[in-house]
């Protein structure tokens, strides 16, 4: 259950890139609070500022103006921050090093901790995590990233999370490359992990169907601002803004007409 501690807080958060003529404002004053144990989904089209916000949450970026707080404090040391907060990135191929086997990299990801578990325990946790994402550990023996398909790689990124068991998970388009069955599996396991650890999960996606199913709250992001926030029912069933309505209409649904063949996109 969500308790009262606030994990992330944005106070008039502004992020600018470049200067002068090339100035680009990615976040234009965001105000939000995310509580512990909550599942929050950021939904929006491309280039709306979702990923920039995610990078703030991971401590990669500092705001230009305003404040961004993790448990009431500014993020100063990244390694301290990463003890608790771990990501799943969008593109699994650039997230893994092509020169090391996947197994080595999964085991090496424990190096982020100040207190690293013993070798045997690391091995056991990696094995368990692999089984959790439906991959036999023996099948992966000596495999390099380029030997796997895109969806399998995505599952390897998830296996990393299942092994590390962080307190906060930032999932940036984590399920966009896997099919519906695997997605159902992954969500199932993430929910179990969430129950077990009272994990806070921040999903970033453009799939409002996924957002509707998993989240406690949905933030609709557009042009660097949070234009709508509320419970899934509020947002998906009674959308207040045009952005949300567009996002809902553009999902291919088997029961609704979508694009009429031999015509222009509606």
């Amino acid at each position: 259950m969500p308790n009262n501690e606030i994990i992330f807080e944005g106070k008039n958060l502004v992020k600018e890139f470049g200067h002068g003529k090339t100035l680009c404002t990615a976040l234009k004053g965001m105000n939000f609070q995310i509580k512990e144990g909550e599942i929050v989904t950021l939904v929006g089209g491309s280039a709306c500022g979702k990923s920039v916000l995610a990078k703030h949450m991971l401590g990669f970026l500092q705001p230009t103006k305003g404040e961004f707080l993790y448990r009431g404090k500014k993020i100063t040391n990244q390694r301290d921050h990463w003890q608790d907060v771990q990501p799943i990135f969008q593109d699994p191929f650039s997230a893994f090093n092509q020169f090391y086997t996947i197994r080595e990299q999964l085991e090496d990801s424990f190096n982020v901790f100040y207190k690293k578990p013993s070798k045997a325990e690391v091995k056991k946790r990696v094995d368990d995590a692999l089984l959790a994402v439906n991959v036999q550990p023996s099948e992966l023996e000596g495999k390099f990233p380029f030997e796997l398909s895109g969806g399998q790689m995505q599952r390897m990124l998830l296996a990393r999370i299942f092994a590390l068991k962080p307190k906060v998970l930032i999932a940036d388009e984590a399920t966009s490359m896997v099919d519906a069955c695997v997605r159902a599996n992954i969500l199932d396991y993430l929910m179990k992990l969430k129950e077990e650890l009272n994990m806070t999960i921040i999903f970033i996606t453009h799939d409002i169907g996924l957002a509707y199913y998993v989240s406690d709250r949905i933030f609709i992001v557009d042009d660097g601002q949070i234009v709508e926030q509320g419970t899934p029912d509020e947002v998906a069933l009674t959308p207040k803004t045009a952005v949300t309505r567009h996002l809902l209409d553009d999902i291919p649904d088997i029961h609704k007409p979508w694009i009429v063949r031999n015509g222009h996109a509606q």
Partner: peptide, 18 residues
């Protein structure tokens, strides 16, 4: 049966994993 959608009543329905 593993599909997710943002329709009314779909929230409680758990997608079936294989």
């Amino acid at each position: 049966s593993a599909m997710l959608s943002a329709e009314e009543g779909a929230r409680g329905k758990k997608p079936e994993a294989i």
